[in-house]
């Protein structure tokens, strides 16, 4: 599959990555290789094979509805860029 510059731009914007021209060229080649590798799967005959939705043969892994203590707020906020009145302070975000 041919990975165009537009695809690279789109994917990097989705991932919020600001890439240089050199990086884009490098990544373009790498993504092409990954996609080509995936194409190998398409050469296999999968007739009669159930689509898989999980790699492990386990289902219904549940926990009981019981409350346990949360983590102290200082720890939750430890990596916050800025803190104000116990909240994470981030650049203005209005949808």
């Amino acid at each position: 599959m041919i990975i165009t510059d537009e695809i690279i731009d789109y994917v990097s914007s989705l991932a919020r990555l600001d890439l240089s021209v050199e990086e884009k060229t490098k990544i373009k080649g790498e993504i092409e290789k990954i996609i080509d590798y995936m194409d190998v799967l398409n050469t296999l005959n999968t007739t009669g094979v159930e689509p898989m939705s999980h790699v492990l043969p386990v289902t219904n892994v549940f926990r009981e509805d019981i409350v346990a203590a949360s983590v102290p707020r200082e720890e939750i906020l430890a990596n916050a860029p800025e803190v104000d009145h116990g909240a994470f302070r981030v650049p203005k975000t209005v949808e």
Partner: peptide, 11 residues
């Protein structure tokens, strides 16, 4: 939204 500092507080 904090209109004074023009920032957003996340809880």
């Amino acid at each position: 939204h904090d209109p004074i500092f023009d920032t957003t507080h996340a809880d």
